[in-house]
Each structure stands twice: as structure tokens, then as C-alpha cells.
Simulated assay, not measured.
Amino acid sequence: MKLYIKYMVSLRCKLVVKEELKKLGLHEVAVDLGVVEILEDITDQQRLELRERLLKTGLELLDDNKTVLIERIKNVIIESIHYSDGQLTVNNYPEYLSEKLQCDYTYLSTIFSEIKGITIQQFVILHKIERVKELLLYDKLNLTEISYRLNYSSVAHLSNQFKNVTGLTPSYFKKIEKARRSNLEKANLPPAEPTETQL
């Protein structure tokens, strides 16, 4: 039996879900982002208890078919951008999503736009830009390497899309984030000992 869980977007979330299933005597076959497959059929009482326990951790057990579908779309996109080295472009997502979810892309796109208020393409772009921000701040890859990793056609294309979404160039974003982090680190340091000249 498959259960769909909203806000389940990290490895920590997977561990939380596994633990909550274990407490209820349920055995997972597979735990992926947003979906859990269990051996048993879940009773109404177990479903209610699981829903309550997950809500306390910031997760939500889903029942509505459209909501489940939206979460599945989001999780496939997030996983492809944040947790794999897949070389997908925005234009590859219609085919990719149709294949992964075994559903017509036009239907997926219509439902997604209706419920989320943005297109799948816009959602993909927003997450690609979030990933660019992360990679910029890790400071291990330059913009050319980031552009290649996220399958942009060029550095200029990445930079233009970044500026359209954030209002900043990638280099300026990196500069202000480093300055902000530096200021936060300084704020957490204890005051410096006064020197002899200050006494």
C-alpha cells in the first residue's frame, strides 16, 4: 500500500516517517520523497494516528487525489534538481514527468496550474534557481560549472534567469550572502579582549 506525505523533502523527513511507521507496527517496503510503500493495509485508526503524529513533525498525510498528484509532481521535480545529477532542461520535464508519473503531461500541467497558481515550468525554474543559490554559496563550483551541472544552455542563460527570478546577478547575490554570513558570524563572537592601548 502506498501513502503520500506532504512536505517530505529531505533525508531527515524519511527517517521521521520510518520511525513513526515503526511505532504503529507498520513495515515500510520503500520510503522516497513524498511517498511511502508499506507491507500492510493501514486501518482507519492507524491512518488517524499516523496523520496526527506526522502533523506534529511538520509533515502531512494526504488523502485527496489531486493533492496527492501535485505532491508527486513536486517531489519528482525537487528530486531531479536537488538530489540527482540528472541533466534535465526545463523543456525535458513534460516527457520526464509523464514517464515518471505514468500520466498525460497536459493533465498534469492543468491540475498543477489550477491548484498551485503557477505552471510546472515556473516551478522548475524556481527550484533550479534555489539550487544555483546553494551551489554558489558552497563555493566549490564556478558559474560555468554550475551552468553545466544544471544543464543551462549557457552561463548567460543561467545569469539572465537568475536575475529575472531574484532581481540580482549571481555574483552580486554571492557577494551579499557572504557579507551577511560574515556579519552573522561576527555577531556570535564574544567581544575581543581590550588591548593595552585601549585600557
Rank of each mutant, 00 (worst) to 15 (best):
G58L: 06
L184G: 10
E185P: 06
P194M: 15
S80E: 05
I78S: 09
I73Y: 11
G58A: 08
R53E: 10
S109K: 14
H157W: 02
K56P: 04
D41Y: 00
Q122W: 08
L61Q: 01
K186F: 15
N151Q: 05
R180V: 07
M8L: 09
I5D: 00
L141D: 07
L189K: 14
L135T: 06
G25D: 07
K22W: 11
E49N: 10
A30I: 02
N188A: 15
T119V: 11
Y172A: 03
L21Q: 02
N160I: 07
H127C: 04
C13Y: 10
I38C: 00
K66P: 00
L59K: 03
T89K: 15
L137M: 09
I120R: 11
K163M: 07
K66M: 07
L11Q: 12
T110A: 14
Q46F: 03
S147D: 00
Q102S: 14
L150A: 00
K100R: 15
L143S: 02
Q45D: 15
L143Y: 08
E60M: 07
R53N: 06
K14F: 11
T89V: 08
D44F: 05
V132H: 02
K163W: 05
F173C: 02
D63I: 03
E193V: 15
P170T: 11
K14L: 15
S182P: 07
T169Q: 08
K23A: 09
N183K: 15
L168W: 08
L54W: 00
L61Y: 02
L168P: 00
H82K: 12
H127T: 02
Y96V: 12
L137Y: 04
V35P: 01
R12V: 07
K56D: 07
K6I: 01
N160P: 01
L15P: 05
L50N: 03
V155L: 07
G117W: 13
L143M: 03
N91E: 14
S159K: 11
L50A: 02
R131W: 03
L97C: 12
